[in-house]
Design a protein around this nucleic acid. Structure first.
Length: 254
DNA sequence: TGGCGGTACTG
DNA sequence: CAGTAC
DNA sequence: GCCA
């Protein structure tokens, strides 16, 4: 046999996802902000790394990466070797992993998910949906009828999106079109810089929505122009420095 | 050993 | 004001 | 948890 090759090989993205899993579980568990933030930051670093994390690990220089210290490096090494880590295992024994997907419902963060779990025993999307439909959510202090509706909408959106994420090949041209339209609608000096952000910028193969970031001396002017673009179907939220709209076709854009 | 982004929006 | 999202 |  040739030199023993690992049975599985893991990509930078796999590693990043594992670090994100740890971060989310820690957050739901209620650990202090910076304990889990560190893992999320490290995940972003790994995800954007041009080099193969396997090579870096082999060279023993993981901790040279920004945001990667002793703790994260240990987790990465274990994951590359086994596809899992002690830390993640320990976390999984304390927090149901299925809670992670609840976190993806817009408007639901770790804190609310933790309460839904502890106070209503909700651990899955299906259970969440059922509880909302049975109006059991509004019984919780701080959760009202409105929250319930939003959860229902969010779950529906997630179920829909799950099967209908937009391919980058479709999303990116749309975003670039928006950027160009915005430039044309405004004087040249109104926008210092503008570019795609989020999953678009990270070249993910599919995206859930469009994120566009602009630097401008006059935010209000840009927000107004953005909302009036012909490809905008509905303004969902129009702030002074942030706007969310739904485009024709259903894609949402910030 | 102390700092870690800052802000806007919703309920 | 707390929680969430960017 | 990482960094200065």
């Amino acid at each position: 046999m040739m030199n023993a090759k690992p049975t599985h090989t893991f990509t930078n993205h796999d590693v990043a996802e594992h670090l994100r899993l740890i971060a989310t579980l820690k957050e739901i568990k209620g650990e202090g902000r910076f304990h889990w933030l560190a893992f999320r930051n490290a995940a972003d670093v790994i995800d954007n790394l041009p080099e193969d994390v396997n090579d870096i690990a082999a060279a023993g220089t993981l901790t040279d990466l920004p945001g990667v210290g002793k703790g994260v490096a240990e987790v990465i090494e274990q994951f590359l070797a086994t596809g899992d880590s002690e830390l993640a295992g320990k976390l999984r024994s304390q927090v149901p992993v299925t809670l992670v997907e609840l976190t993806e419902v817009p408007g639901l963060g770790a804190k609310k998910v933790a309460r839904l779990w502890r106070e209503l025993g909700i651990t899955t999307l299906a259970e969440l949906k059922a509880a909302a439909e049975a109006h059991r959510i509004r019984e919780l202090k701080g959760f009202g009828a409105k929250t319930e509706e939003n959860i229902l909408k969010g779950v529906a959106l997630l179920e829909q999106r799950r099967h209908a994420r937009t391919p980058l090949g479709v999303a990116r041209p749309q975003a670039l079109g928006l950027i160009q339209a915005l430039r044309e609608a405004l004087p040249a000096d109104a926008i210092t810089a503008i570019e795609p952000a989020g999953s678009l910028r990270r070249w993910k193969e599919t995206v859930g929505d469009l994120d566009i970031l602009a630097i401008t001396p006059d935010p209000a002017q840009v927000m107004a122009a953005f909302q009036q673009l012909p490809q905008v179907e509905e303004v969902l939220l129009g702030g002074e420095t942030k706007t969310r709209v739904r485009l024709h076709g259903g894609l949402e854009c910030d």
